[in-house]
Design a protein around this nucleic acid. Structure first.
Lengths: 204, 204
DNA sequence: CTAGATTCTGACCCGCTGGTCGGGTTAATT
DNA sequence: AATTAACCCGACCAGCGGGTCAGAATCTAG
């Protein structure tokens, strides 16, 4: 039955996802996935060619999928300020799903070269570039329409992306070295105030 | 002679530094250091207990040392805006020295847990926390003095640190996945304009 | 019930790399 | 020249972990 096959494959995927989130990709061994799933190590390789392939599958379905219609942001008929807000919300929503701890995201973004699969590396890079180009596009549009002051749009996009990325790290990931304000919970951060801060630099 | 001993030890350190910068800590093997230095693998272990120790030494002398008198920033009798500017310059100066490619810094900051030496891990965390607390201190002072508008100082510090970190990444490290604007060289970025952008959000 | 296909399994393989160690080489001392 | 200490070395060791495969277990069909 196709159903039976998919079920076991899916079970392996979900188990791997759990472990990747909680221990990180590099710290998760194939035997961990097999043990946790209650199957033999060899069985994992019945459904996947390699560890990379498992990760790639998860990247596509769990991570990249969340940004699939990010491009639509550019076409929306709303002020650019609002677009930035929506971009932030998309990031917050997506990240809250897959950023249980620091390992997953950071493995993904920073150590992408350590993966063997060139297609996987390419996909990761593409996602980052896509995010940047959308943000850059919003800012360019804002400058053209006069909503934002005339400034170096690339510089502004970098500044904005940096601030947002860092905010999200602090917000959603238990990043030990960056646990800079341990007394504060994620829910206590004020999304509006953050937006205000990062957007003010752009206003005329 | 003490000099002879120091020379060889220093030579190993410099060789390791070079390799760490260009290949990253995890990609650099002990045998690489030995081969490059033109000595035997065993000789490396005559001068250092472990790979960690080599890295720790370099971290102390090459990285942390650059931030040693960062705290003095807080006591300076200049506007806070100027202090932020100096903070940025310190970061740019330091980073330009040791951020030949992405591997070193990212290994340092992000994968710090992967090191075995608890004292090393602690040191890395301390440096990040120190940077943040200085930046946070500057902002608090600016708010108190009325130079900056009343806002969430922690949030502002995070936003600022995120933007600066990311700017520096783009500026000084050849981060492949973040090679977002490949046509632009580091020297072409306008430091003043960047400062303007990130500081405007703080002004009354 | 039986034969063959399908699925599952873990012992095993193998490349990798940080770290060790016994013995060789060089230099200082007498 | 002989003794000894300091220095140097690379073959070797041991643990690790991704990936394999021969056979066991289970299922399906006739």
């Amino acid at each position: 039955m196709a159903k039976g096959k998919n079920t076991k494959r899916d079970m392996i995927l979900e188990t791997a996802y759990d472990l990747f989130l909680n221990k990180g990709y590099w710290e998760t061994k194939i035997i961990d996935i097999a043990d946790t799933a209650g199957i033999g190590k060899g069985t994992v390789y019945e459904y996947f060619e390699s560890k990379d392939e498992i990760f790639f599958e998860l990247f596509k379905t769990k991570v990249a999928a969340g940004y699939e219609n990010l491009s639509e942001l550019l076409d929306k008929k709303v002020p650019c300020e609002k677009k930035v807000e929506e971009y932030l919300d998309i990031e917050l929503t997506n990240t809250s799903k897959y950023a249980v701890n620091k390992s997953f995201l950071i493995d993904l973004m920073m150590k992408s070269d350590a993966f063997r699969n060139p297609a996987l590396i390419e996909s990761i890079h593409e996602l980052v570039k896509k995010k940047f180009s959308i943000l850059h596009g919003i800012i360019k549009e804002g400058i053209n329409s006069g909503e934002f002051r005339k400034t170096d749009s690339e510089l502004a996009a970098i500044s904005l992306m940096g601030a947002i990325n860092f905010f999200i790290s602090i917000n959603y990931m238990h990043i030990e070295p960056f646990e800079l304000i341990p007394t504060r919970k994620a829910s206590e951060w004020n999304r509006e105030e953050f937006l205000d801060l990062i957007l003010n630099g752009l206003k005329p």
